[in-house]
Computed example of a mutant assay.
Amino acid sequence: MVTLLKNIPGHPDNIQTLEVWAALFGINEPNKNKKSAAVAELLAAMYRELELIREQMQKANFSESLYSSSVTRIEDALSTMLLPATWNQVRQYLTPETFVALSFCGEILPDEETQIEPAELTEIHALIDELQVSLSDSQLPPRLNKLVEHHIDLIRRALAEYPISGAKTLREAARTALGELIEEKEIVATNREAPEINKLGSVWKKVNEAADTALKAEKLSQLGQKAWAMLENVF
């Protein structure tokens, strides 16, 4: 998350804060209300990560004076109340000193995952785009079509949150999807030969592979692949 914030390019003081965050997150939504909602979701993800940093630093028994004020400044910068404001009102919180303190937190807290290769993320994006296109002339029952669309949204949201929260966002999305597929196993099994279902399976396998590789914690090792194998056996 710190890396993402530090990569915010220079912007004029009078540009709207909403537009700065939208550009950083790659949100190209023309509808301003939808754009605001999408930005707010990702700012909330950042806020949750800051809360996690606070909790981990407290458990590590580090003095709050070393990091608390910096975390608070970032929280102020992430306020959705500032989305209509000009960027200079937000930039005042994003000082080099703040980033140094947060980088220090990142250095001392346990590193539980490795970075997913950009090529893998690009491949997942491409698979999702292909699946989305295939739904345009799909013959799936409406309920199943809606489920596939929801899973596309789950993966897109997880990919958007990945630079903020890491591979655990992919794992959480896969866990949600697995539960939904098991609930709808009869209609999925009936249509398992449909190209859209095959594509959906390919996407989730790739997502699980990426998450399993990135997450270092032993208890999470290969969790996604084992879960998907279980689902395939059910079908």
Rank of each mutant, 00 (worst) to 15 (best):
E75I: 04
R48H: 10
F25D: 06
T72N: 12
I27Y: 07
L78F: 00
E97K: 14
A23I: 14
I53W: 03
V90F: 01
L78D: 00
S70P: 11
R48G: 11
A77K: 03
T72L: 10
K32F: 08
S69V: 12
Q92E: 06
T72C: 02
D13V: 13
K6A: 09
E55K: 15
P84I: 03
E49H: 10
A38D: 11
Q58R: 15
K32A: 12
E29V: 05
E51V: 10
P12Y: 09
T72K: 14
S103N: 13
N14H: 15
T98C: 09
F99Q: 02
V71N: 04
Q58P: 08
S68R: 11
Y93S: 01
N28Y: 09
K6H: 01
V20N: 08
T98R: 04
L4E: 02
Y47F: 14
Y67W: 15
L83Q: 04
F99T: 06
S36F: 15
S36E: 14
P9C: 05
E75Y: 04
S70L: 05
Q56E: 12
L4Y: 02
L4A: 03
L66Y: 15
R54Q: 11
R54D: 12
N33P: 01
K35D: 04
A44Y: 05
S63H: 12
P12K: 05
N28M: 14
T95W: 03
E75G: 01
F62L: 08
T72P: 01
E64K: 07
A22C: 11
Q58D: 13
M57Y: 06
E75R: 15
G10C: 09
E97M: 08
T86W: 09
N33Q: 13
L24V: 11
L78C: 00
N7Q: 14
N31V: 13
K59H: 11
Q92A: 05
P30Y: 00
W87Y: 08
A44I: 04
S68G: 00
L102A: 07
S63A: 11
T98P: 03
P9E: 07
I15Q: 10
S79A: 12
S36A: 13
E29W: 02
E29P: 05
L18G: 00
V20T: 02
I53Y: 09
I8E: 03
W87P: 01
K6Q: 13
P12F: 10
A40E: 08
W87I: 10
Q92N: 02
L78I: 03
S63D: 14
R73Q: 15
G26F: 03
G26A: 05
Y93M: 08
L83S: 01
S36Y: 13
Q89A: 09
S103K: 09
E51H: 12
A101T: 02
V100H: 13
M81L: 14
T17S: 11
D13L: 12
I8S: 00
L78N: 02
A77V: 03
I74N: 05
Y47A: 11
L43K: 02
S103L: 00
A40S: 15
